[in-house]
């Protein structure tokens, strides 16, 4: 039995089932945009956002009874930053991290009750040059390995810390800036990373779905190379590595201007050679056109062959055999922005 929690534009939903059928519980937080899910040992966390009421974090031990925390991450009163949305929770074994928009990182050591800003990143000397993209100015992906931390910030780039988050350096060499020619000027920031996936055994190897293409680094981000052989387009948001098999997953979208599956063919693409070559994953895809995309937080996997994603059209797709066969759940939901396998 699989349990999935999804966050949508209007509420969260708990999905429980298998190939024999699925039950849907919810909405959790009706009327709220549910933007991220996290876990800190036995505590579940859900982040919500509202155009009217800003950001909130709720905690639950049973996914049924949720308690709001008193003080979610906040910017100083004298800053010109707004707390628009919490995009990502990440637990590194000791600390719980949160990536937010306007872009920044916060950490918690009490399972999300209180939060402290990561000043080394949030007040980075390049910050005056951080400009938002279409999705805002968001810190949306966090990777950790020991004392090393990577963060992906849309329209800014990847930063790495080698000292647990005290100091940070941009790591985008080899990736074109979002608004410059391939071989144009290389500013310190201005690189629009959409997704990151890491090799848990070799954490200096990271895959990157960027606004400008698909890339891989084997030196922790010091240099990136393109890996797009077999993909019908190099735009998209999904980048996932199944740790057990090493298989890579991505979902190409047509282009920056037209963020839908190429020719209406919603397909996951796989790679078994570390991204050198890609091909269409398995069976189960519909013949009917599908013009819904997949957003940067709307997928998750268990590292053992199970992978699930939600679409902007509110449908949920799952594979239990590492991408060989795919099932679309019958239920549909509002635009999906967050997915977590429980």
């Amino acid at each position: 039995m699989t349990r999935i929690v999804i966050g949508s534009e209007k509420g969260g939903y708990l999905l429980t089932g298998d190939s024999g059928g699925w039950s849907v519980e919810g909405p959790l937080f009706p009327g709220w945009k549910v933007t991220a899910f996290g876990r800190d040992n036995g505590m579940h966390l859900a982040a919500v956002a509202s155009n009217w009421f800003g950001v909130g974090i709720h905690r639950s031990e049973d996914l049924v009874n949720w308690e709001p925390i008193d003080r979610p991450p906040a910017w100083p009163e004298d800053s010109d930053r707004k707390m628009e949305q919490l995009w990502r929770f990440h637990h590194d074994g000791k600390r719980l991290w949160a990536g937010v928009a306007h872009a920044g990182l916060f950490t918690s050591t009490d399972a999300g009750v209180t939060w402290n800003p990561v000043d080394g990143l949030n007040e980075h000397h390049t910050r005056p040059d951080w400009e938002p993209g279409l999705g805002g100015l968001t810190a949306h992906r966090i990777l950790t390995a020991g004392n090393q931390v990577w963060v992906a910030i849309s329209a800014v780039g990847v930063f790495r810390s080698d000292d647990g988050g005290a100091t940070w350096s941009p790591k985008n060499d080899g990736v074109p800036p979002v608004d410059s020619p391939e071989n144009g000027p290389r500013p310190e920031v201005g690189y629009c990373v959409h997704g990151l996936a890491q090799d848990a055994e070799n954490p200096m190897t990271i895959w990157r779905q960027d606004h400008r293409g698909v890339f891989r680094t084997t030196d922790g981000g010091d240099s990136w190379v393109r890996i797009e052989n077999g993909l019908p387009a190099n735009f998209g948001f999904v980048m996932w590595r199944d740790h057990g098999s090493g298989r890579m997953f991505t979902v190409p979208l047509e282009s920056d201007e037209n963020r839908v599956p190429v020719d209406g063919r919603l397909r996951v693409y796989l790679s078994d050679d570390r991204g050198e070559t890609w091909w269409v994953a398995g069976t189960g895809w519909p013949d009917a056109p599908q013009f819904s995309g997949v957003l940067r937080g709307a997928f998750d996997g268990d590292g053992e062959g199970r992978f699930v994603f939600g679409t902007t059209g509110g449908r949920v797709w799952i594979t239990n055999d590492n991408g060989e066969t795919w099932e679309c759940l019958e239920a549909s939901f509002p635009r999906i922005g967050a997915v977590s396998l429980l």
Partner: peptide, 19 residues
Amino acid sequence: EPSLKAHLLDETGSIRQHI
């Protein structure tokens, strides 16, 4: 109700724009 502060006031302590 401490959690309501962030929902009703913005970063500057003013009433949120759409309230």
